[in-house]
Design a protein around this nucleic acid. Sequence first.
RNA 1: GGGCGCUUAGCUCAGUUGGCUAGAGCGACUCGUUUACACCGAGUAGGUCGGGGGUUCGAGCCCCUCAGCGCCCACCA
Length: 725
Amino acid sequence: MQKELPKRFDHKKLEPLIYKEWEKSGYFNPDKLPARHKEPFCILMPPPNANDPLHIGHALFVSLEDTMTRYARMRGKKALWLPGMDHAGFETQIVYEKKLQKQGRSRLEMSREEFYKEVWDYTQKNRDTVRNQLKKLGSSCDWSRETFTLDAKIIKTVYKTFKDMHGAGLIYRDERLINYCVKHQTAFSELEIKHKEQDDTLYFIKYGPVEVATVRPETIFGDTAVAVNPNDKRYKKYIGKEIEADLIIEKRKLRVVADKEVDPKFGTGALKITPAHDAADYEMWLRHKKDIGAPIQTIGKDGRLNEKTGKYKGMKILEAREAVAYDLQKRGLLKKTEAYKHAVSVCYKCENTIEPMLMKQWFVDIKPLTSPAVDAVKKGKIKIMPPSQRKVYLHWMLNIKDWNISRQNWWGIEIPAWKCVSCTSTNENEKWIITDGEKPEKCPECENTKLERDPDVFDTWFSSGQWPFATLDWPKGKDFKTFYPTDIMETGYDILFFWVARQIMLGLYKTGKVPFKTVYLHGLVRDKDRQKMSKSKGNVIDPLGTVEEYGADALRMALIVGNSIGKDPVISEEKIRGYRNFSTKLWNVTRFLLLNSKDNKLPLSPEYDATDKKILAEFDKTAKKVTDFIEKYEYWNAAETAYHYAWHTFADKVLENSKSVITGENEKNKITRLSMLIHVWGQTLKILHPFAPFVTEELYGHLPLKNKKLLLVEEWPSGNAKKNK
RNA sequence: GGGCGCUUAGCUCAGUUGGCUAGAGCGACUCGUUUACACCGAGUAGGUCGGGGGUUCGAGCCCCUCAGCGCCCACCA
């Protein structure tokens, strides 16, 4: 006997109960699914950072990935959506240092161990929060497999990869000019720097017999040469000769070299070379190494001028710039200045100017990894969606640079490399011992036991790049054999290079197989005025607050419908409210059917008439359409089609037109029609379930149907749709 | 400087190999308290598909060109 439904879906009360029921069923775990679920299907959740609650972007990936997973599960797949959380190395360190600062504390007053312990506890607390939030959004992921990026098995895999790649010559240590943020005091890869237009001053300085132009007069103490264009008549006579320049603190002899990269039309056409503090100059130095002096480092990691700068020692960069310019002018060396607008590299996090710094770091020799990664995409082993991003990926791969994986942070996976103090006599002949993570007892060559661990940690993306095979227990785990390669990598296009590309390269390198077959890249969530959401603009939509007010289904529908791939999704409260109304509609349709069927014996063996058959056929057509859209990854169209059918076809037309039959005198017709309607409605709830799981599950539970299961594992009404390929 | 993309109703967007009287949601307007639902129903208005040119029997969809917008990449001091 069905109880009469209230007028509305009480999402606050019911959603948690429904989620509990799903969890109790065990079906989130592919190993516990009924026997019909055979063919494996797997999505790895992009692990949210365990340093902050979820934001709307997370809700977007949950909506998409949960939809994908639920569809696959209903379709009879052995579906695994593996959840994870990210320690998020550098990001978390910044977050936690800010917290410390608010408490009047600082990392620098703590030992590395104390700091690590505190951040560990902090991330574990956040993991609980994030896990609960993911549940509130309806995530049907297998919690028994939840993985943290610092779990022992992940670290073990990362160490092994590092050691193997080092052994294969794919990882090397070298001193190079790297991107260094003076504020965060760490190196970055190319991807963590941005370019920003900036207004600067171009200083024209008398430089012995010539004149040079620079925006950074404070670096003159590190000058080792002058470069001119080989075809520049003005300077031809100096090429190969030495000139003497007044560098304030000393007079220095500098070789003039010819390099075609020098633009004779820019500035004076003569360029001072400061290889230790300018990327272009460094490249120039590499080309003329044998002719010109070695780089002279004159700025320290603290962003202040060092002992090689005489009286300027201790000054900050900008301070020194003014002081040097002033002194140059006093000596009559500053000829003129010009306003100059150009792009400078800045830290992606704090937007401070990146200071190029000569440092020894671990690098991945990336080129050998790119050709398999390019082939996999070109040959269709990996399909990247939208197609425009495929082009971006291929283009990036062509212009890729060696990857600096060393970071001067405390929070992260420590690099398993030890330096033998006795074998290492100079900066040039460092002797490193790489292990699986354990500290080596002694140096294998000199047997000395005095070993120093590299204090650096890995770039977080080096470890997350190994996520697919690490989480699935490569090489021998059961999950690896069952679920690798995974089916879909669903994530934001903003981490195409950071994460997706690296997963492809490292996955192919380690396992010989692609880590996933399809890449689905969603956009950045915008507000209704197409603005990026940010706390300072005050236009953020808090996903959990929205779930409280309108229900998870409403939020999920709003994030999926109308948001085609390749465009930044737009969401607004009005839109969410609209889909909350949709939940109510579904609720009331069910209510109406139940009110009318409570005194009738249902279902009957159906003898459908022409009208019934037409209704059934129309549903089949809809189900087929929805299925085809999903198979083409067009979730926005699939959801809209199902939505439109439920509301504007089934409720507005089918149900309205059936009222006369239902209230009519003919008992048999009445019962036939009702059982048909209830059947079709049950099917409708099925095609809506991946998008709006909670309300559909609840309502399905109330329908008087035979052999019902949880909607979660009901069979997808495929219509005549094409089978997934 | 290089690359990618966008421009369709007031707003946000669909429109996949060229064949439609160009659609949806929200918004606007007009009616409407009928055995579910006002978080509702019935209906109406609203578009020279950014401009120009071309291919074609036929173009929102293909080609050329112009304009505007956005994103990514990038060592010219």
